[in-house]
Every structure is written in C-alpha cells, then in structure tokens.
Design a protein around this nucleic acid. Structure first.
Lengths: 205, 205
DNA sequence: AATAAAAAATGATTTATATCATATTTCAAA
DNA sequence: TTTGAAATATGATATAAATCATTTTTTATT
C-alpha cells in the first residue's frame, strides 16, 4: 500500500525527520495512527523470548506502516524502527479511519494490502519451516532486491540474520559461500546481487 | 470471522456436505467465493517444494475460509481440505463483494479478521524461527484446545507434525515425552490436554 | 474374523545449525 | 591519528532435529 493513495489528505499529514535506528512505535504500545514513509527505510520486527529480533518486513519510501493494528484494537505486536535517516509523516487514527469510511478506493486499497501481506506471511511460514537457511537467504536476497532496487543492500549482518531467521554467525558463513560462488559482491555492509538466476534456483519454486 | 455475520444473506447460500479429506479449493486455483463451515473442520495448508504440507490454520464450525484470496486477484496460495465430515456453504465472489459494498458492518468484520489473521501469522513466524519443536508443540496444543474446546484433539500425527512444522517421527517422540510428563493423555488419535499451565510454561511468553 | 494397507512407533545415524570462544576489522569520536 | 567499541569473521564443539530403516499397531475391507 502506498502513501500516494493518501495524497488528497495532505492536510492531515504531519511530517517529521527520524534519525537512523529511531523507533516509530514499540511492541506493546497502543496504536495512534499510521506512518507514511516519504524517505528512508523502516524495519518491522518482533522480539522473541530471549530478545532476539525477527524481522517481519522492511518498508521503503512510499509505503505505509502500522495500519494493521488500527483495526485490531490490541497493542502493536511489532516494533517499527528506521534503518537509515528517514522522513516520515503521521496520520492519526481517527483521521485515517474517517478517510476510510468516506473513501471506497482507500478502503479497497487497505483490504487488498492486508490480503497481500497475509499471503506474504503465509509463504514466509512455509519457507521458515521447510527450507534450509541457505535457501531462505537466497529468497531473502530476492525480496531485498525488490526493496533496494538499484542500490546495494545495506543492512547489518545481524539484521540480515534476523530477517532470515538464523544466527549471525551462520549468516556470515553463508555470505562467504555466496561470495565465493560469485552470487553476490560484498563491500563491508553493502551487498550487490550479481546472479539473480542462481538465487532463484537456490531459493527453489 | 464468523458465518453468523452473513446470516442476513441466507438467500445466497448454497449448502453442501463434504466427506472427510475432501478439498474445498486447491492451491493454484482461482477464487470463486467464500466457504462458511456450518459443521466440521477444515485445514488450510501450503505445500512446500518437496510436497510436505505446512498447515497454516485449522478452521472450525462457524468460521469462514477462503476470503483472503478474493481481494488478492491472484490464485489461492493454500489448499483447504476437510478434516472430518463437514457441512459447508458457499457464497459466490460477486455476492460476497456486493454484500461488502452494501454492508459497513460486514466490511469492518472482514478488515478486522484480516488484521487478526495477519497478527497470528506474524507470531507464527517468530515462533517458527526462534522456538524449539518442543516449545512449538506446546504452543500448538494451546491453539488446538481453542479449536477443539471440550472434545479431544483429533488429528493424525502427520497433520500435527505439519502444523508444528516438524518431521512426523520427531512429533511422535515429543508426544511420548508429553505423555510421560503427564501433560497430555493419548487414546490412539485422540489427545486430551491434562495440564494447560505446563503447556503455557513450555510454550513461553 | 482374516487380511491388507495405512498409520504410528522405535531405534540408529547423520547433518544442519546453534552456541561458545576468540580474533580481526571497521567505524565513530575524542 | 589514536583509541575504544561495535561489528564482522573464523574456528571448535555441541545438539536438536531430520533422515533412514524397521517393527508394531490401528484401521478399513473383503
């Protein structure tokens, strides 16, 4: 779902700059509205029992985060945190819900978005339970390339591991394998994909 | 989301009996409508690359399945199959979408249901990536008890394993452990929970 | 009731991945 | 430019869980 679907309500928007690693909202807090990313990137994650993050989604400029919980009437189950300096606008809960009531197009967009995300999560579950870490890493790179489009992927090893759902050490070892196989190119934090076909092959189906 | 929210449209309903292990719809097929379970139980699963099922959800009498894909405009990503003899009614896509346009209460119910399911799946992902099979089995029993309420859980070992996301042999061994620890009672296929507290403790958080 | 087929159970073995320990590199701040 | 801390990397080891093989039990069918 995209911010521009909310363009006709500029009036309601309050835009703000966020530094890197700043939280938009925290797991357990009460939802107050939705966040529209004008610039930057945001990771959404859940913390497991031992505090380890599981990244559920990475949202980029143009995308909206935090609206799922508006309809849930329960606290956020995920934390949203910037991955880089970002400019993000906020739309209050009441405003957003009013807009939805008034605007069938927005309504359809929300429903469609929720459905899409639901499908994504279901695929994620099946991948998580049936694929090896190597396969999941390949799949993760495919996803990340859609997010980082033409610029190199820029995530810490830990974030990458927390997206794939593995230990940081395991991730680092696999990164080395992929590098040696000529699938990726690594410059410190910046990872470029050299062979997408091979990634698709490794990821399977 | 519950069938009774659709009660005012009885006219549109076409009810039908399903035998055990019959499919309502298949992964890859085009969505034609939603299914309302009057009686019985339905498993929703995805098949992984090697054909192993990952059960995503088990729906019981009163629940609706298959509406996510209506808004997706893409084929079903899961298969729905009865776990026992069932009576299920079908509501065509057009009818359902019309009803949604006309009925704000139904609309809100759909949105709320999608949000809830999305939260469930996200928890599922975190559990899958951070918990041991033993912990996940405990958690699965908590979920199953909400579905089977007062009757014993009645699933094949394979289905149980495919819900937990593990090998059937591993599941069987854990079942034995739980039995020996007095957490569950097993009569062939029927499993009763004796100690919910302990399950909650094992499942964590 | 007898028989076959499917499901469940058990045992032995392998393997992927986590964990723990330590070294090296990168990066930010003084 | 030095210094310290955080991030990354590598090695050694442990272990949960998968896999493979076989047996036993349950269920359905004649």
């Amino acid at each position: 779902m995209y911010c521009d679907e909310l363009d006709h309500v500029q009036a309601h928007k309050v835009s703000r700059n966020f530094k890197k690693n700043q939280s938009l909202f925290l797991e357990g807090a009460s939802p107050r509205g939705v966040y529209c990313i004008n610039e930057g990137m945001v990771k959404l994650f859940q913390r497991g029992d031992e505090g380890k993050e599981q990244i559920i989604r990475i949202a980029k400029a143009g995308e909206i985060v935090g609206f799922k919980s508006l309809f849930n009437e329960i606290p956020y189950q995920v934390t949203a945190e910037t991955l880089e300096e970002s400019n993000i606008c906020f739309i209050g809960k009441e405003d957003f819900l009013d807009m939805m009531d008034a605007n069938p197009i927005l309504r359809k967009a929300v429903i469609k978005e929720l459905s899409h995300e639901l499908s994504d999560r279901e695929d994620f579950i099946t991948n998580m339970s049936q694929k090896s870490v190597r396969e999941r890493l390949a799949f993760t790179f495919i996803i990340l390339q859609k997010i980082y489009v033409k610029e190199p992927i820029n995530l810490s090893r830990e974030d990458l591991a927390n997206f794939v759902g593995t230990a940081t050490e395991t991730l680092i070892r696999l990164l080395k394998d992929f590098k040696e196989e000529g699938i990726i190119e690594v410059h410190t934090r910046k990872i470029s994909i050299l062979n997408k076909e091979k990634l698709l092959f490794i990821a399977g189906k």
